[in-house]
Design a binder for these strands. Sequence first.
DNA 1: GTTTTTGCAAACTTTTTGCATGCGG
DNA 2: CCGCATGCAAAAAGTTTGCAAAAAC
Lengths: 127, 127
Amino acid sequence: MIGQRNTKARENIIKYLKKINRPVTAHEIYSSIGKTGEKINLTSIYRNINLMKKKNLVHSIILNDKVERFELLENKPHHHHIICNQCGRIDDIEMKENEIETKVKNKTCFKIKSHILEFFGLCPNCQ
Amino acid sequence: MIGQRNTKARENIIKYLKKINRPVTAHEIYSSIGKTGEKINLTSIYRNINLMKKKNLVHSIILNDKVERFELLENKPHHHHIICNQCGRIDDIEMKENEIETKVKNKTCFKIKSHILEFFGLCPNCQ
DNA sequence: GTTTTTGCAAACTTTTTGCATGCGG
DNA sequence: CCGCATGCAAAAAGTTTGCAAAAAC
């Protein structure tokens, strides 16, 4: 559960994130729920999403447009994305990253905690 | 040259970026130039930096704080960064990325154009 | 002298916060 | 009924834009 109470807002946010199953902005959540006829407030979305991030139910990515996109972690292993430069489609992609991190660990004197790895290009439809 | 005219603002921005030689925010440029006694306007920084981006003299990265950091490309090969979670220190790091991109190309039906790869951790001083 | 560049204020976008009201358990 | 959640308006912070004034050539 997200917080301490079951509310319509929370139910709708989770339902939508489950259905869409890719990283979406707060506004996408907002307008998509709005289109179903349900009423929801942007502030509530931010508050609930941030709560979910704290509880590790959701994680987010930030790309070049500086907008945060949220994704339900449910049943998802750690993964990265591949994003179409034209239509914005975002697919998941998995990689052997322990290899990468080990390489970087050996090259630098940093203690590596995490990384971002995102690819950009043209999806099959846009090529 | 940046635009069509030589101005003090442009000269100072480039001088600072050359000296600092790592990705910095518009505000860092602003206050650092200010500290030298030179006067400069934030808007001018944004306008000049964006011009430089268009001309491929500068590129930028966006991390979790959603703030754009600019870096002079001059003499720099394509590279990535390793960022200290504690003090914010940003070092360069190079990798064999053609390997990575080829792997991704084979895994997906996307035509890959670019990627982001940034590491986070603790620098030697902060460990 | 003309065109580019600047400075300033204001707009804009995304996200957060304060505060009063509402709803869940 | 008590406290968590919501809605609304306003605040923040970073960035962009419009317009008149200044500077470059």
